[in-house]
């Protein structure tokens, strides 16, 4: 009985902490957007060179790995698609499934997970280190708002870069799948391209890109929240960095499901 009560109490405390963390995340997002929109009026504009530097870091550096993985996923979907459809002799319809899954699901998802692992964790580590070195206090006492200086630039960079990276992943994935399908079913790449264009509606493309932008926000905010909550030295930074990757990927997958549920029903 006492154990059960203890357990309940611990659960309650965890839940309260979770709600508090969620509130912190929402506040941070609100403040970052505030500074992006009204920073100039408050004499603290969000600096574009800083956004560009973040964008280079998030985007350009991630291009090679995103290219490799989208190629792999395109091939994988084509192989699986043909294998599955063969069982009822419908392998000629493979393009439909492949094109929709890449554009609506796989591209945003794989891009989100990659960016969470590369940039979200880096953001958490950077903020965590800055926190334990008192660098965040140093910004505050200089009259430089830390959210404006540290959170708004990566947030803006992510919201722009994630859809662009996803678009690239779409193209690469569709191309790789097309190559396999054209060879395997003895069609031409041009015929495949025509089919893709006739299948995909703008809505499908936007569905994926909108999710990518949302994932960008999630990755940034989760990274910042975990970085800002670091305590306990370098070890704490490591712990929160790991936590930020796990949380960001979970948030991406769950949000994806909710988004799909709300939008496609």
């Amino acid at each position: 009985m006492k154990d059960a009560l203890n357990w309940l109490e611990r659960l309650g405390r965890k839940a309260a902490a979770g709600v508090a963390e969620f509130g912190f995340a929402a506040t941070l997002f609100g403040q970052a957007v505030y500074w992006l929109v009204l920073g100039r009026w408050r004499r603290q504009p969000v600096r574009m060179p800083s956004v560009a530097a973040q964008a280079m870091d998030i985007g350009i550096a991630a291009l090679p790995i995103i290219t490799v993985l989208s190629t792999t996923i395109g091939l994988m979907l084509a192989i699986q698609g043909i294998y599955t459809l063969k069982t009822f002799g419908a392998e000629s319809r493979v393009t439909l499934g492949v094109a929709l899954s890449i554009v609506r699901e796989f591209s945003p998802l794989i891009t989100g997970i990659l960016v969470a692992g590369r940039s979200g964790s880096a953001l958490a580590a950077r903020l965590g280190t800055m926190r334990i070195n008192q660098e965040i206090d140093a910004l505050s006492v200089m009259g430089i708002n830390p959210v404006r200086f540290l959170v708004a630039p990566p947030l803006m960079a992510m919201m722009i870069l994630m859809p662009l990276l996803t678009l690239w992943a779409d193209l690469v994935g569709l191309f790789a799948a097309g190559l396999y399908i054209a060879i395997e079913l003895q069609g031409s790449l041009a015929a495949y391209a025509d089919e893709v264009v006739s299948i995909l509606k703008l809505n499908d493309l936007l569905h994926g890109l909108a999710k990518a932008a949302i994932f960008g926000v999630l990755v940034t905010i989760v990274g910042v929240v975990n970085g800002a909550s670091v305590s306990g030295g370098a070890e704490g930074v490591g712990r929160m960095t790991t936590r930020s990757v796990v949380h960001a990927i979970s948030a991406i997958v769950i949000t994806d499901m909710i988004f799909v549920f709300l939008v496609t029903r």
Partner: peptide, 14 residues
């Protein structure tokens, strides 16, 4: 805050 300066214990250089 622009009229005060702070030197932190650890330096807190970026």
């Amino acid at each position: 805050r622009t009229r005060m300066g702070v030197a932190f214990q650890s330096g807190a250089l970026f």
